[in-house]
């Protein structure tokens, strides 16, 4: 870990906090809000890679735990980790790692389709695989029931994966951080 990596990690944790400023978008038909902040894990993994990306999210989660109101809607503090959806917040760290790992593996073939697929695998499949059983246990419901409860958010999360993929591919073109030539 060089100084430069520490700075990338710290500044990306700050970007995740800044994402809370995006106004939530309401999906028509389904009627659930989608917030930009959960794109933080996808962007951190896709831009910084597995190690730095997951550390950026871990740092963000740590600062929330220490009491800074950085989650969208100004939420923060220890209370966040005792709610029914806490699994998703811890899941962001794992999601960033998986997205980062896959982005590094497919770096030379990265385009909007592969990047979107990677973001869906890490940011939807892996994230829900952590968040859904977590809610099931703490809310005393079955995994299937918890999944039914989270289902309305899946279309929004897929949309966010596509938007993140667009950003990741564009940033790769102008400022590539991964790959062999610019390996950190």
């Amino acid at each position: 870990m060089e100084t430069r990596d520490i700075v990338y990690i710290a500044l990306f944790a700050a970007i995740v906090a800044a994402l809370a400023l995006f106004p939530p978008i309401w999906l028509p038909v389904i009627g659930v809000p989608i917030t930009a902040q959960s794109m933080g894990a996808m962007l951190a993994g896709g831009v910084l890679g597995a190690k730095r990306g997951s550390l950026a999210l871990a740092l963000f989660v740590l600062l929330v735990a220490l009491g800074l109101p950085l989650l969208s809607g100004g939420r923060g503090g220890f209370g966040v980790f005792f709610g029914p959806t806490a699994g998703y917040i811890f899941g962001w760290i794992v999601a960033a790692f998986v997205i980062g790992y896959l982005t590094e593996r497919f770096w030379d073939r990265l385009n909007i389709f592969t990047a979107a697929l990677i973001c869906i695998v890490g940011g939807v499949v892996v994230l829900y695989a952590i968040g859904v059983p977590w809610s099931a246990v703490v809310a005393k419901v079955s995994v299937m029931q918890a999944l039914t409860g989270s289902a309305p958010f899946i279309p929004g999360d897929i949309l966010k994966a596509v938007i993140s993929a667009l950003v990741i591919v564009t940033v790769k073109r102008s400022y590539p951080l991964l790959g062999s030539r610019s390996a950190a």
């Binding site: 700050a14 564009t170 940033v171 400022y175």
Partner: peptide, 18 residues
């Protein structure tokens, strides 16, 4: 456009980080 907001934010931050 979310992409038009995020790309400059990320690129500018990476440049600052250097």
């Amino acid at each position: 456009s979310i992409v038009a907001l995020l790309v400059p934010l990320v690129v500018r931050t990476l440049k600052d980080a250097d």
